[in-house]
Amino acid sequence: MNGTQARHFRADKFDFWSFFFSGLTGLATLFIIGILVTILVNIIYNGWSSLSWHFVSTIPTDLFNMKTTGILPMIVGTTIRVFVMTIFVIPVGVITAIYLTEYAPNTSLITRVIRAAVNNLAGVPSIVFGLFGLGFFINFVGKNMDLLLHNPTSVWGRPALIWAALTLAVMTLPVVIVATEESLKAIPPGLREASLALGATKLETILKIVLPQALPGILTGGILAVSRAAGEVAPILLTGVCTYMVGLPHSPTDQFMDLGYHVFILSTQSNDIDATRPILYATVLVLLMLTFALNIVAILIRARVRKKLRALG
């Protein structure tokens, strides 16, 4: 008994290396959190004072003048492009995830190829999506639509809201697929069996039992995709954004202004960076609030769903 106790108290001996490396990795963790906090504090602190209702609700006449500028068209542009994107990406992503979890034989070649494609799509650089949008949607689809419709001037074959949204939809497809798949896999197989044993077809089981259960997960995927897309600039650079336009976009073939692109313009094209700094910070703050709010909502929904599913067994 005494022997065991003596060994148990070995921790009395100060283990230098253990302490040193735990401290080192702990510091790395703290450092990363420090980066995040610094960025957030810096932006909130500097952006808060110049943020006003006037700023977010005004259509600007001079981008670089605090008094006459506003970011309404940018907020509208970002919102619309992201909204149009979800219309395309959610159905395709959800159906693909349904195929992968509910229909696909796990070991078949086609399933593995689809999974590999999804993984790869997630890793394609965003600027390449931009090139793709330009090469495929604008120069191929758009130009051919103009030819077919006999448009005297180019209507579809040039950068536009719809092409930017479609490009983003391709980019965020993996986000939606992965999130939906995760939520489908979390549904207990017993529920599917119960439904099938009652004589429901596969489709009925999916529509009536599986999808209602997976809805919050699908929602999370959609929100994550939206938040990812809202902050992306590179893909829309070549496919539809513009530095300045009068008024708001009216049709899918219009160009649009965008929050993230506006941040880029303000920080690189301004003649007097000190004068535009407040505008810049306020714009960044709005962009950050938008993407972070979405992220936090997604995290909360996900946490709730996990809790509920755990209760379900």
């Binding site: 980066i35 995040l36 809202a230 600039v233 590179a234 993230g260 692109y261 920080s267 962009l287 993407t291």
Partner: peptide, 16 residues
């Protein structure tokens, strides 16, 4: 918290 870092758009990181 660390994963939140990936939620910051790259244009914002560039700006910072």
């Amino acid at each position: 918290v660390i994963e939140m870092l990936s939620g910051i758009p790259s244009v914002v990181v560039g700006f910072f």
